[in-house]
């Protein structure tokens, strides 16, 4: 007969051996706020500084130093008032700058950029009904959640006053902002801002289109997708 003590020791060892896998299983399935455990450090953390790293040698802890006042980035100044500020001899430019070719690709780019930077407020079709506007209106009414919210609703891009604005003025509004609208020139490149202007023009045109704006060959397609309700009613009446 095996002495009891050996049996107990074996049972304790087996129980102890189950503990590390249990801890590991927990680590694999849980989220943890503690820094990662790196058993082998290699050269994971080196003394060098990369993009947006911290450098405690500076007061503000930034390894990337802000440019000295008056410093100009390469390519930042393009010697074209038309391209960079949307003006020509002090008045809003009425056409796109010569550096830019408005074609289908450019419009698609504008659409994509509009959907990234503008639609949250102005809405996908530009009616000023974006989701941020809807949320902000709710916050205005609900002072408990609103916490000091103030809001000037985004403009409906199909209003007559904005229709009448020339492209240079729209470009300027995107660049430097207006009322509630923030300046976006640091987020969107010059070319992309012009692309957005082109897309705004396309939206305005699309929402005020006449049947005659559509090439004759495409008009049949338009009717088959039931955009003209009178046809539907006639069909239903016929069936009855």
């Amino acid at each position: 007969m095996i002495p009891r003590i050996f049996i107990y020791i074996t049972l304790i060892l087996i129980a102890a051996a189950l503990l590390p896998p249990a801890i590991t299983a927990y680590m694999r399935t849980s989220k943890k706020p503690q820094p990662r455990i790196h058993f082998i450090q290699d050269m994971d953390n080196q003394g060098k500084f990369r993009t947006q790293h911290e450098n405690p040698l500076f007061d503000d802890n930034r390894a990337m130093r802000p440019p000295v006042d008056g410093a100009v980035m390469r390519g930042e100044i393009v010697d074209s008032e038309h391209l960079t500020s949307g003006t020509l001899n002090g008045t809003w430019a009425t056409s796109f700058p010569s550096q830019i070719t408005v074609n289908r690709e450019f419009l698609q780019r504008g659409r994509e950029r509009f959907d990234i930077y503008c639609q949250s407020c102005h809405g996908l079709a530009g009616y000023g009904d974006g989701i941020v506007d809807q949320v902000a209106r709710d916050l205005l009414v609900n002072s408990r959640l609103g916490k000091g919210t103030s809001w000037v609703p985004p403009r409906n891009l199909h209003e007559l006053t904005i229709h009448q604005q020339v492209v240079g003025e729209i470009f300027n509004t995107i660049s430097v902002g207006k009322n509630n609208m923030p300046a976006l020139e640091s987020q969107i490149t010059v070319e992309d801002r012009w692309a957005i202007v082109a897309w705004v023009r396309a939206l305005q045109r699309s929402q005020n289109a006449e049947l005659t704006d559509i090439p004759e060959s495409d008009r049949d397609n338009l009717e088959t997708v039931n955009l003209i309700p009178s046809n539907n009613e006639e069909e239903e009446a016929d069936e009855e």
Partner: peptide, 9 residues
């Protein structure tokens, strides 16, 4: 861009 106005307090 947004929080200058929204929920600023």
């Amino acid at each position: 861009n947004c929080h200058e106005k929204i929920k600023k307090d």
